[in-house]
């Protein structure tokens, strides 16, 4: 990666980290309800892949750990936070919540809360791209545990059969909720499971963004060139629990410490310092500046935004009635 790109991505990753940490705080303060799944530790995965792809052009879909993917695609952090606050100005107008961030203008096709659910949706988006003849690709980010769902296998089969332009990114963080991969899955290395579908698959370190980027470039090129699907497994770790109700009793503090020494932000920071492109002071200033932005703009916007109106509670169940009248009443043609 070019130095300038690395510096920009570091800024983004710091924003992603601080955004998520601020969500944690807001959740404790009960400003955010429901379930909250945070991304710290895995930032190099989303950022590395999307640096190799075209954010806002390629279609991205993911599970419920979705805030950072949305922001990386171009969603406004203010709207994402306002969504967590359940406000009308939120990306899904307060109807979705943390697990259902959408920004279709930025081609972020949503966060979905059924584990594995996005697999066939991603393949369907790829099918639509194929029918329409565009150069976009569909990128599906999911965790390792999703691969134990039946639709994973059903989707790989169809994606390979019909050569669909879809990249499956498996963020293997070693845990499915509170069960370790050793205890839930017969095969630790997920890319091996894909071999049976004749789909090229690769695995790499998910903590070093430059490693992710290099592998993702190959993956994206493969898919965009019309060669069909590709599966990329990134070995990573989430520093926080599965969601906020998780006290992490299923793993050791030693293991967590080991992974914290491979913090994706520090890996990139230290490299830039070593390359003479950054100083520790500048990094600390960046963190402060990011926190100030989150506080003064993101949180302020979310706090001050209005709640949805109760009389609008049935809005968005169906398409706008006026436009649908010919089909509802049979008055067409």
């Amino acid at each position: 990666m070019k130095i300038e790109d690395k510096k920009r991505v570091l800024r983004e990753m710091v924003l992603h980290r601080r955004f998520e940490e601020r969500c944690y705080q807001a959740y404790i303060e009960r400003k955010i309800g429901g379930f909250l799944h945070l991304y710290p530790g895995q930032e190099a995965c989303c950022n590395g892949v999307m640096e190799a792809a075209r954010p806002g052009h390629d279609y991205v879909i993911t599970g419920y750990r979705d805030h950072v993917h949305a922001i990386k695609c171009g969603a406004d952090p203010k709207e994402v936070m306002a969504e967590l606050y359940g406000k009308e100005t939120g990306s899904s107008k307060g109807r979705g919540g943390s697990m259902h961030i959408f920004d279709t203008d930025k081609r972020f096709m949503g966060g979905y809360a059924l584990v594995g659910g996005p697999f066939p949706l991603a393949a369907g988006i790829a099918k639509a791209i194929q029918l329409k003849g565009g150069d976009e690709i569909a990128i599906c980010f999911l965790g390792d545990a999703a691969n134990n769902q039946g639709v994973f296998h059903e989707t790989l089969n169809m994606a390979a059969l019909w050569k669909l332009p879809v990249l499956f990114v498996c963020e293997n963080n070693l845990y499915g909720i509170g069960t370790s991969i050793e205890r839930s899955t017969a095969v630790i290395h997920q890319h091996k499971r894909v071999a049976g579908y004749n789909i090229p698959a690769d695995e790499c370190d998910g903590q070093d963004i430059e490693v992710v980027y290099e592998h993702a470039r190959k993956a994206v090129d493969h898919v965009r060139s019309g060669n069909g699907p590709y599966f990329l497994e990134l070995m990573t770790y989430r520093y926080r629990g599965h969601s906020m109700s998780d006290s992490r009793g299923y793993r050791s503090r030693e293991e967590e410490e080991l992974w914290k020494q491979r913090d994706p932000i520090f890996i990139l920071r230290d490299r830039l310092i070593k390359e003479g492109a950054l100083t520790m002071e500048a990094f600390e200033a960046l963190e402060k500046e990011t926190d100030a932005y989150i506080e003064n703009e993101v949180i302020k916007f979310s706090e001050e935004s209005p709640e949805p109106r109760v009389e609008d509670r049935e809005k968005y169940v169906f398409a706008d009635r006026e436009t649908q009248l010919p089909w509802l009443t049979g008055k067409a043609a």
Binding site: P120, L121, G124, I125, V151, E154, T155, M158
Partner: peptide
């Protein structure tokens, strides 16, 4: 075959695939 698709016997999979395609106006 691109518009009249014989699917594998994977109801969950192909139904989801159709829904995903509909997100883009198919």
């Amino acid at each position: 075959p691109h518009r009249v698709m014989d699917t594998p016997i994977s109801e969950g999979g192909f139904t989801g695939l159709g829904i995903g395609a509909s997100f883009l106006g198919v």
